[in-house]
Structure formats: C-alpha cells, structure tokens
Design a protein around this nucleic acid. Structure first.
Lengths: 219, 219
DNA sequence: GCACTTTTTTGCGTGGCACGCAACTTTCTG
DNA sequence: CAGAAAGTTGCGTGCCACGCAAAAAAGTGC
C-alpha cells in the first residue's frame, strides 16, 4: 500500500479544505468548552493561526462554523448512496446509505452528550444547525434523483426531507436520553417511515389527561 | 352578533401582540420591497412608530422578524388539530388539520410568487426560516402527543417532522413553478407519506444519464 | 379619581461582527 | 523562472444585539 496517496487535488484545494476543516473544528471545540457567547471570532482564528478576516472568507458567521460538521456529512452520504448495488430497491439503498454514514462515525462518546445537549440549547445555533441539515437534504435529494433517473423530483425531495427528519429526531432522542443508542433508534424510525404514517394510529386512542411534556423545542 | 367582542386579554397583552404582529409584517413588507440588505432595523421600527430598541425586545434579529409569519401559524395548527372529531384516525386528523390551516390562508396570490422566491433566495433568511418551521413542528408534535395520549413520543416527533417536510417541499414546489396550486400538491405529498416510502420505487429504475438539476438548494 | 406596583418603552453606551477594498503573498502554468 | 491566478491580511465602515437605568404606560385596590 502506498503510504502517500497521490494528491489528486491541487495543493491550493487541499489547503483550503484543511483550513475550513480546522476552523470548523476549532469553533466547535471552543464552543463546547466555553459556550458560544464566550467564543470570539478572533479566538477561533488564532487557534488555527489565521487572521480573523480569513475566517470570514470561509464562514460568514461563527454559528455557521460551529455547525459545519453537520454539513460535512453530505459527501459521505452521496458516496454511500451511489455505492449501493444497482438492482437494490431505492428505499433499501437510501436506508442503508444513511445507516452506513452514521455508523461510520461510531456510536458517539457518552462523555460528550451533556455538552452537546448544552450546545443544542444555544438558541443562536438552532437556525444554522437546521440550515446545515437542509444542505445535506439537498445533496441527498439530488443523489436520489440521479439514482432513479426520471422520477418525479417532488418525491425525491420528500424522501430526502423525510430521511433528514428521521435523523434529526433520532439525534434528538439520543442526546436527551441517557442509555439509548443512536443507530437502532435511527433504523427504527426509518422503518417507520417506510411503513407509512398510519402505524402510529395503532396506539391506544384513549385521551389520557396527563399533561405529558415532550421536552425542549429542540431540533 | 356583538360588533366588539369582549377583550378577554388584558390591554397590555393585546398591545404586545399587536406590536409584534405589526413589526413582523413591516419587516416582511419592506424586505419584499427592497431586499433584506436594504432594510435597516431602524426602518422597521419607524414604520411601526416605535424605537429601534423596542424592536429588539420583540425579535432578536431582523431575520427573525421577517420569518415570524411562518411561526404564527402554530396557533391555528394547534386549534385545527384539536378541533377534529374524537374518533377519527390520527393520521386523517393530522392531514385534515394541516390542509385546513393552509387553506385558511387561501391559494396565495400569484403576484407575490416572484418576490417570495427572491425572498427565499436570501441565504441569510434560510436559517431563520427553518427555525420557524421547527417551532411549528414542535407545537404539532406536542399536540399530536396530547391527542393520542401515552403513545411513543418519538413517533409523535417523527410524524410532526414528516408533516413539516411535506409542507416545506410543497411550498418549495409552489414558488418555483408557475402554474401549480399549493393545496393539491400538499395533499398529494401527505398521502405519499401515509403510504410509506417504497412507493417511490415504483418508478422506472432506468438510470437516465441526463444530468437533471433539482433546482436551488432552497428550503 | 388617586396612590402604588408591575410591565413596557426608550436612549445611551459598549462590544462585536460581516464585509468591501486594496496591498501583499502563495500557488499554479507553461 | 516569469507572469497569471487565487488566497490572505489589515484597515475602515456601517450595522447590530443587548445590558442598564430612567421614564412612561397599564393594571390594581381603595
């Protein structure tokens, strides 16, 4: 095996990617440590050894930088989906691609959960967070469309949006509960989507007067 | 019929609501007229006859103000769902509630479409826009949970998220095409969700080499 | 109608942020 | 190695969110 794989990308390209990655990572780390309001753009820039002005060449806000890790999954998502075998039914492909992507990252470290939960509490991040998810959704929709050829674009979008919904809900559940694993929940939710909505109706329709809170407005 | 309905809310409460509504509306109108980057917080405040500082007592950014109309639907959504008859299957209730809410507003004026499309192009608004949708989703999830009693909260969330997905996709389609109506599309997408994902697979799996663009990353 | 409390509005000041611009440095190409 | 192309940086500018405390408005009890 070659220890140095031939850099197919130009040096510039690699440097750019690396800089962006480093900035996003630094932003996330600092925010987890101190909370967003105690992180200045200057801090992030310094951490990476770059001028504050340069930071804004890559991201147009620190919130965007912090959330960039979500968006970064889009590449893996695309590859995972395109790598599925030709004849496989579409939904199976999508499901497996999603599961592949998120198991690639491994069951996330329990130690981070509390901090991530705190992170998500940051109102200021919610918008950017969702925007990043939407970016992944867009890639997913395009890839699905490419895979199935001439099928209705609306349905591709709907499928992509539904999948991202499941991902968001699974993550939400993951970092608001203590013991549960991410992947099984995600798989279950995806199966639920496949089955269709009425499944939920199977539950007891008795209106319990208990005011059950659903938790934070998160996600 | 009483021409003046007795104000069940205190004067303060009414004034607050009115102020917020006026600010949001002004923000939206000005943005549609001139584009977000040509609207200053000061302009919005002046329009309503209030100090800039007060604007920030109601909204923590102008983007939030512009998007507030989306979030304002949550109240109607809640009522519409709770108003459905007792014995009705859950999904049917949800579907009808959503359709009720969006027909309440009437098929949107064609004249606005171009401007709305432009509005959605504003990168800066996307995050807030999604945040508002998420807020509606949250209310929807809570209301669903309340309606079905003790059923799995995860599934309630998933359903709410899916519904919002359909809404977003339907809107997207509505303001990126010329002739189509919003409500029929929305209903079709909701039915698609009810049926479950594999429906999409029904399409021709032939991989057309045409590089079909899916349109803007919007929504 | 009148004191007293609670809530909202407002002006001011501060720290911070995004971005245009133009000079400078690095990388690329032949 | 020389010129072109792309990326980085410092500076300046306009704007913005929010804390704070004083003033104004709305609610309350008598």
């Amino acid at each position: 095996m070659p220890p140095e794989e031939p850099p197919k990308l130009t040096l510039r390209e690699r440097k750019k990617r690396e800089a962006r990655r480093a900035l996003g990572q630094a932003a996330l780390r600092l925010t987890l440590e101190r909370g967003l309001e105690n992180v200045r753009v200057e801090d992030i820039a310094n951490e990476v050894g770059v001028s504050p002005r340069t930071f804004n060449n890559y991201f147009s806000s620190k919130e965007q930088a912090v959330c960039s890790f979500v968006e970064d999954r889009h590449e893996g998502m695309r590859e995972a989906l395109l790598a599925r075998p030709e004849g496989e039914p579409l939904w199976e492909s999508v499901k497996q691609a999603v599961l592949t992507q998120y198991s690639r990252e491994g069951e996330p470290d329990r130690a981070y959960v509390a901090r991530i939960r705190e992170l998500m509490g940051q109102l200021a991040l919610r918008g950017e967070f969702l925007r990043s998810h939407a970016a992944v959704e867009q890639v997913l929709a395009e890839t699905i469309a490419k895979r199935v050829g001439g099928v209705d674009h609306l349905l591709c979008r709907l499928m992509a949006a539904s999948v991202e919904s499941a991902v968001r809900v699974a993550f939400f559940n993951w970092f608001t509960t203590e013991g549960e694993l991410l992947l099984p929940t995600l798989e279950r939710l995806l199966d639920e989507l496949a089955t269709g909505m009425p499944t939920l109706t199977g539950g007891v329709p008795k209106p319990e007067p208990t005011t059950t809170t659903l938790g934070e407005p998160l996600c």
